[in-house]
Design a protein around this nucleic acid. Structure first.
Length: 614
RNA sequence: GGUCCAUUCGUCUAUCGGUUAGGACGCCAGGUUUUCAUCCUGGAAAGAGGGGUUCGACUCCCCUAUGGACUACCA
């Protein structure tokens, strides 16, 4: 025993020294490394697993990227140039040393992830985030993003939902490499990608489990099950109760066969071995252990429609499609042990994907999962695109139609549950791909903060060129029967864009450029329109009439000179001027407005104001 | 009820055993401005509670509380 400890110590010393040799860790830090190794094995594991992905990334000929080795509070630049490549091998060796066999295999595996929604309605914003994280992860590691449609429940199928999903992902810039919606769907190596079209595939694996005695046939009708549930509190179909049910374990073989050939409907249930420890390695939560006794004998397959249920289909398809990482919502965590068991029962434990269960998106106020109703109640979309329920005709609003830029939605969603570890808030998709890491996904649910979403859109709006915004704005104007010269429009956009969050708010901020006010804000009239104002405005009209060059700069100079000469109060004149031209106490610089609407229009508006307000 | 997961400003989060607990949204105040916004500066604002472990705990462990998810022939 003591001998072993000594050997270990020497081994560790060797590693620590190698580390010091190849990196620029300070000598004093080597002691910390030793301490880590000796006393905090679990930390060491985490420590190395942190840059596993960086190593992989480096592997993909991205030679310019430098993985960093972060040790305590000192950040050590780890790889400076290719000449330091041996360093990678040392760390790699260390990592392998502390990893189990199957981890090694996973390290070498090509990253393939899937987003697997069920076409039961519009894609929920939480689902969008799951898709986004899958996409970011895949792209970061040079892997594949698949879209698979999980439509094994024909009863819940909603027409148009699949198209909606594909269109949403397209809009957001989440491109599918393989599967439904991919550029060459039919040519995918693992086609088809709709479970309903994969119907024939599953039976074989169900039979395999049946033959191995790891599953059994059950004839209990829904009504019988319901009866059992009300009869026995906390009833669960499992090792304790399966003996009292109607299934192939309690019935003689010939009766089972007779029932089947009589056309009696049945299901296939997994036969869970009780009292086993089932371990799920979750990339976000660490190891989750549960006792198999709490898992019930889930239905894997139903004879009615010859389709598997989610659990079976999902495991079989992930295996067949060579999925390396299953990244999905936290609501799947409780059934993850069942999936692990299924991989074992099918003999695929060495090809099992790694799991990552994402935290949920919670409602903004109160608690619970974000739902469509919250959006309706609080007035913000919870779907990417508008949707109209084909049955009820009930509409749901989407981010696209609400005026959001897809980049803003992506940025906002990316930060709801993940952060880069820096203080940067605005990220392009490219930056997100480079920076994304499951290690930095938080464990707890995130409340949906709609206000911040607006802020993101504001930021993206400011970043866009005036030309780009003017083009979108042009369409809105045409819908409102306003025709405006595109160059002038660009100028208008430059003056008002910083005041809005959305392009569709632009009209409200700039209507006075296109139309003279028809009424004047009562409060402002009271405050800014005094007895002497009409006479002053008459004077202003005369001053303006004498101006040839109506550019903002020139007009401003002349008007201000006039105000000074008359010894008027600058604010008094300007506010009344604004009220006359705009009708409200708002808008950009006055002379920028007058330059755009022009001399005649300006004077006309002043005259009208004098007439109306007296 | 059972199982699992989680818990840092109002909200999203940083912190990998030693920090005046940092940033962002929102809020408040001041400044800029002829208006309203924008913008700039500043401010208030947090480790659920209790036990351990440790020289030292927001950080590791346990208990409690709270919240959430799951508990279908749905996904």
């Amino acid at each position: 025993m003591t001998h072993n400890v000594f050997i270990r110590f020497m081994e560790i010393l060797f590693y620590a020294q190698t580390l010091q040799y190849f990196t620029n860790i300070k000598r004093s830090k080597v002691f910390d490394v030793l301490k880590f190794f000796l006393f905090k094995r679990h930390k060491v594991m985490r420590f190395f697993s942190n840059f596993k992905m960086d190593l992989l990334f480096f592997d993909k000929n991205e030679g310019c990227r430098r993985p960093e080795l972060k040790l305590k509070h000192s950040r050590i630049e780890f790889i400076k140039h290719a000449a330091q490549l041996p360093t990678i091998f040392v760390i790699f060796a260390l990592y392998i040393k502390f990893c189990s066999q199957d981890k090694k295999q996973l390290l070498m595996r090509r990253v393939r992830v899937r987003f697997a929604p069920s076409p039961t309605g519009p894609l929920h914003i939480g689902g969008v985030r799951t898709a986004l994280y899958n996409y970011l992860f895949a792209k970061k590691h040079g892997g594949d993003m698949l879209l698979r449609i999980e439509d094994t429940d024909s009863a819940r199928f909603v027409p148009g939902a699949e198209e909606y999903i594909v269109e949403s992902l397209n809009w957001l810039g989440i491109t599918i490499d393989e599967g439904v919606g991919a550029a060459a769907e039919s040519n995918g190596a693992h086609a088809p990608y709709r479970q309903s079209e994969r119907k024939g595939i599953y039976r074989k694996y169900v039979d395999q489990l049946l033959e191995a005695g790891l599953a059994y046939i059950a004839f209990d009708t829904p009504a019988e099950l319901e009866a059992k549930r009300s009869e026995i509190a906390n009833f669960q179909y499992d090792a304790k109760t399966r003996d009292m049910m109607t299934n192939s374990l309690t019935l003689p073989a010939d009766e089972v066969n007779a029932r089947i050939s009589n056309g009696e409907q049945y299901v296939v249930r997994i036969k869970i071995e009780p009292d086993q420890e089932v371990k799920v390695q979750d990339l976000i939560r660490g190891e989750v252990v549960i006792n198999s006794s709490v898992i019930d004998d889930k239905v894997l397959f139903k004879s009615v429609d010859e389709l598997p249920t989610y659990h079976m289909a999902n495991v079989v398809d992930d295996y067949l499609m060579e999925i390396s990482h299953v990244i999905r919502g936290e609501e799947w965590l409780p059934s993850a042990p069942l999936h692990v068991l299924l991989y074992q029962y099918l003999g695929w434990q060495n090809n099992m994907p790694e799991f990552a269960h994402l935290p949920l998106l919670l409602k903004p106020e109160g608690n619970g999962k974000l739902s469509k109703r919250d959006g309706d109640r609080l007035g913000f979309p919870v779907f990417p695109l508008n949707w109209k329920d084909p049955k009820t005709g009930e509409p749901s609003s989407g981010y696209r139609e609400a005026g959001y830029f897809p980049e803003a939605v992506v940025n906002f969603l990316a930060l709801l549950g993940w952060n880069s570890g820096t203080e940067q808030e605005i990220f392009s998709m490219q930056e997100l791909i480079e920076l994304f890491s499951l290690d930095r996904v938080s464990k707890s649910g995130a409340k949906f903060d709609y206000e911040k979403g607006k802020w993101f859109n504001h930021k993206y709006l400011q970043q866009k060129s005036n030309r780009e915004i003017a083009d979108i704005f042009q369409k809105i104007l045409i819908e409102n029967d306003i025709i405006e010269d595109s160059e002038k429009l660009e100028k208008i956009v430059s003056l008002v864009k910083e005041r809005v969050n959305f392009v569709n708010e632009l009209l409200g901020q700039s209507i006075f450029f296109f139309k003279a006010p028809t009424e004047y804000d009562a409060k402002t009239v009271q405050k800014r329109w005094k007895a002497e104002t009409p006479a002053q405005m008459e004077g202003l009209i005369q001053t303006l009439e004498a101006i040839d060059d109506f550019s903002a700069e020139n007009t401003e100079t002349i008007v201000k000179e006039w105000i000074t000469a008359k010894e008027y109060n600058l604010g008094g004149i300007m506010n009344a001027f604004r009220l006359s031209v705009v009708g409200e106490p708002k808008g950009p610089h006055m002379f920028d407005i007058t330059e755009i609407i022009g001399k005649e229009e300006t004077i006309e508006r002043l005259k009208k104001a004098i007439d109306t307000l007296g």
